[in-house]
């Protein structure tokens, strides 16, 4: 980061290659890097499961609720899924940055948030299934 000021073109190219936090501290043990990568993938799969659930409810249960209600519920679920993908990338970066600098792994509210989302969604769909029949 010190030395002669690189041109914006070079900064942009470096950012595209590796973000700045990846050049700080020391490279973590490969086991921790790979575990972090698998945690990222587990979150991505959670996000994909939400997307699959949203599209599946919309298509396979058209009578679960009046169309506008069903649409809003499914779009909300898919939005949470897409947002969770972004969050998992951010979390992956934060975790590795903490490992590189020997800091405690950051606490995150993603788990609490996801617990609440899944619980509320399950409750809402349970009520809808009961009402629909």
């Amino acid at each position: 980061m010190v030395g002669k000021l690189p041109g914006t073109d070079k900064i942009w190219r470096d950012t595209l290659r590796e973000p700045a936090w990846r050049r700080t501290g020391k490279t973590p043990d490969y086991r921790f890097s790979l575990a972090n990568e698998r945690t990222f993938l587990a979150w991505i799969r959670t996000s994909l499961a939400l997307l699959a659930g949203a599209v599946a409810v919309d298509q396979l249960a058209p009578n679960i609720a009046p169309t506008p209600v069903r649409l809003v519920l499914c779009v909300l679920l898919a939005l949470v899924g897409a947002g969770l993908a972004a969050l998992s990338y951010r979390r992956w970066g934060q975790m590795e940055a903490a490992m590189r600098n020997d800091q405690a792994l950051p606490f995150s509210r993603v788990m609490l948030f996801m617990t609440i989302v899944v619980a509320v969604a399950a409750f809402a769909f349970a009520v809808l299934i009961l009402v629909a029949r």
């Binding site: 890097s33 996000s47 898919a78 993908a85």
Partner: peptide
């Protein structure tokens, strides 16, 4: 370790699929 670019590209692919899913839901209703 995975390069940040690979991880970012896979994240963007999933987010793109999310946008597609939303579009498919909106079109299907």
């Amino acid at each position: 370790a995975a390069s940040a670019r690979l991880v970012l590209v896979s994240t963007l692919a999933v987010m793109g699929l999310g946008a597609t899913a939303i579009a498919a839901i909106a079109l299907g209703g």
